[in-house]
């Protein structure tokens, strides 16, 4: 750990659990809450309209440590935030006789867009200073507004659509392309053109070893392009602070850079590497970086493995035909 507080803080675990959810007073099935993934999914087929959600929370604090330590007026606060709507809903939790803290956090659909984050902070008076942050939940929860499955979003969007006749008119200009990678917005999207004959069926299909091997090569090619596009977008979108230093991004850009920078500039720490790619982009040297970016993207797309498997399968197929 490379961070220090100017006063003693809790070292024990702080765990947060969502025990129940109500939408407009009606309880949500427990299957929409995943304690394992720490995700709540609020989208329900039967109930697309709701205004108010209520999360019942239970928090376990290291009570013994708290009791023995230098902390007074301990408060336990849950906060639900979403950066894209600048929303912040909080709830003070109360300590029950059973030894945990509980309470309900209410928030409104109108104040949120897609994904809110729920966490818990413990505040206390330390050395006479009130309201000091002395602990936070080990892991935060995710509240998904548009998901039906309470699972962490792990991959980017893959959107199968007919570029010529789909609802996104802008795709019409790409109607002869098999796929397009879009890197704006909340999550990058790979648009697969169902109007491109055979493509989507082939990608979704099963088939003989050779067919599978070719599919692997095709998928690797799409993925490598996607990773390259995402890397370029993530670097291009970097926000700088007043002194021109790039700020570490959030969301998918964070994931992409963390995944690829160690392969792009392996001898630099990840923060030095970010600074370096930013300088290369703004002050020259970007071209020289391209092979490194392609290499990093190919590693993410497992291109070497997929091509090797593909070639092997095809040569075996040729041999058996003889």
């Amino acid at each position: 750990m490379n961070t220090v507080f100017p006063y003693p803080v809790l070292t024990g675990d702080i765990t947060l659990e969502v025990t129940a959810v109500k939408l407009d007073g009606r309880p949500l099935p427990l299957s929409m809450i995943s304690r394992d993934h720490k995700v709540v999914a609020l989208h329900e087929v039967e109930r697309s309209r709701w205004d108010e959600a209520r999360l019942d929370l239970r928090v376990v604090l290291p009570e013994k440590e708290l009791a023995d330590g230098p902390w007074d007026d301990v408060a336990c606060l849950a906060a639900l935030t979403e950066a894209s709507t600048n929303a912040r809903a909080t709830a003070r939790l109360r300590r029950s006789d059973a030894g945990w803290w509980s309470g309900s956090l209410v928030f409104h659909r109108d104040a949120h867009l897609t994904r809110a984050s729920l966490t818990v902070a413990v505040a206390a008076t330390v050395d006479g200073e009130s309201g000091r942050l002395v602990g936070m939940a080990e892991e935060s929860w995710i509240v998904e507004l548009d998901e039906r499955i309470p699972a962490r979003k792990q991959e980017l969007n893959i959107h199968e659509t007919d570029f010529r006749n789909g609802s996104e008119t802008w795709l019409q200009t790409f109607q002869d392309a098999p796929w397009v990678v879009e890197t704006t917005g909340d999550m990058p999207t790979v648009h697969l053109n169902t109007g491109f004959e055979g493509l989507v069926d082939f990608l979704n299909g099963g088939g003989a070893p050779v067919e599978r091997a070719v599919r692997g090569m095709l998928a690797a090619q799409i993925a490598a392009e996607a990773w390259t596009a995402m890397f370029n977008a993530a670097v291009g979108d970097l926000e700088c602070d007043d002194e021109g230093r790039p700020q570490w991004p959030t969301g998918w850009r964070d994931g992409v850079l963390r995944s690829m920078l160690p392969d792009v500039l392996p001898d630099l720490s990840i923060s030095d590497a970010l600074m370096e790619v930013h300088l290369r982009l703004t002050e020259g040297g970007w071209q020289e970086l391209q092979p490194r970016i392609q290499y990093a993207a190919a590693r993410r797309a497992k291109t070497p493995k997929n091509i090797a498997n593909g070639l092997r399968a095809m040569s075996r197929d040729v041999e058996t035909e003889r």
Binding site: I149, Q154, E155, I158, A219, A220, G255, S259, R300
Partner: peptide, 19 residues
């Protein structure tokens, strides 16, 4: 059931939590 969200072979290669 989960809506698949695109071909599995591709999804596998596009996990942004890969790191």
């Amino acid at each position: 059931r989960v809506k698949t969200g695109g071909p599995a072979v591709l999804r596998e290669l596009l996990r942004i939590d890969a790191h």
